[in-house]
């Protein structure tokens, strides 16, 4: 691949004595949607969290190898971790808004980056809420707590919050699994629009979803990468027996 946005090389990750990721080599294309699929427990979430070093906050985790983002090795150089994380927005399986009101949720990332002028914040909050298709629903209650929103709204709020730190990459861990079909469809459509500006990596269990939106697919099994390639190759002409079996639905 030419100029991958992210290049993972020989990544081995241990939790305690258990090896979770085994010699993982992955390349993620820029401004495309990369889908990570694989059976439950195979290490998809762990791989995603290594990319923004959320693995740092767990104890007993040992990470070896290299992860290059924009050709900078984020594991081995003295990367400023807060700057690294601001390059990525994270959507988790279940939305976790911050314990504050809707407005402050979006403004949070801007404020910790030193942007505090009210006028500027007002404009940005509106902009990102519109981006996440939430503005019309919440514009009259920006000061009410985010916890009162529905799960689907919370996930969109988290998307807006993630976009507000102006990332280059969006990491999404089964972002639609807690959502109703309409909210799910919305997130999918949004991702397709967003890939014009962002590199998107999404974990999913839903093969149909992967087929709908993937440009590039990574298939994991028991901590190993079994196969990766463009969506077309992957779905129409899989090389590995395990991939074929998975696509036939034999694992799930």
């Amino acid at each position: 691949m030419e100029n991958p946005k992210i290049k993972v090389q020989n990544l081995n990750l241990f939790i305690g004595k258990q090896q979770i990721l085994k010699n993982v080599n992955v390349e993620i294309p820029e401004k495309k949607i990369t889908i990570i699929i694989g059976p439950s427990g195979c290490g998809k979430t762990t791989l995603l969290k290594s990319l923004n070093r959320l693995t740092d906050i767990y104890e007993d985790i040992n990470v070896q190898g290299n992860i290059f983002i924009n050709n900078e090795d984020i594991l081995n150089t003295k990367t400023d971790i807060t700057i690294l994380r601001k390059k990525m927005g994270l959507l988790s399986q279940r939305p976790y808004p911050l314990p504050m009101n809707i407005y402050d949720n979006i403004a949070y990332g801007l404020r910790i980056s030193g942007r505090k002028q009210k006028k500027y914040l007002d404009k940005r909050v509106e902009h990102y809420l519109k981006q996440a298709n939430l503005w019309d629903e919440v514009k009259d209650r920006l000061k009410s707590p985010a916890s009162a929103l529905s799960i689907g709204q919370q996930q969109r709020l988290c998307l807006a919050r993630g976009l507000a730190v102006d990332p280059e990459i969006i990491l999404a861990d089964e972002p639609t699994s807690a959502l109703d079909p309409i909210s799910s469809q919305y997130i999918e459509e949004k991702f397709v629009q967003l890939k014009e500006h962002y590199t998107i990596i999404m974990v999913t269990h839903i093969l149909r979803q992967a087929r709908r939106i993937a440009d590039y697919v990574v298939f994991m099994y028991l901590g190993e990468i079994i196969e990766q390639g463009t969506a077309e190759e992957f779905f129409n002409n899989p090389q590995q027996e395990k991939t074929k079996a998975y696509l036939k639905g034999l694992f799930n």
Binding site: R85, S92, R94, Y96, P97, Y108, G109, I112
Partner: peptide, 15 residues
């Protein structure tokens, strides 16, 4: 405090 909230905070670039 749920781990997910901690992760959300860090992933926004909080110290």
């Amino acid at each position: 405090v749920p781990m997910g909230l901690k992760e959300a905070s860090y992933s926004l670039g909080s110290t």
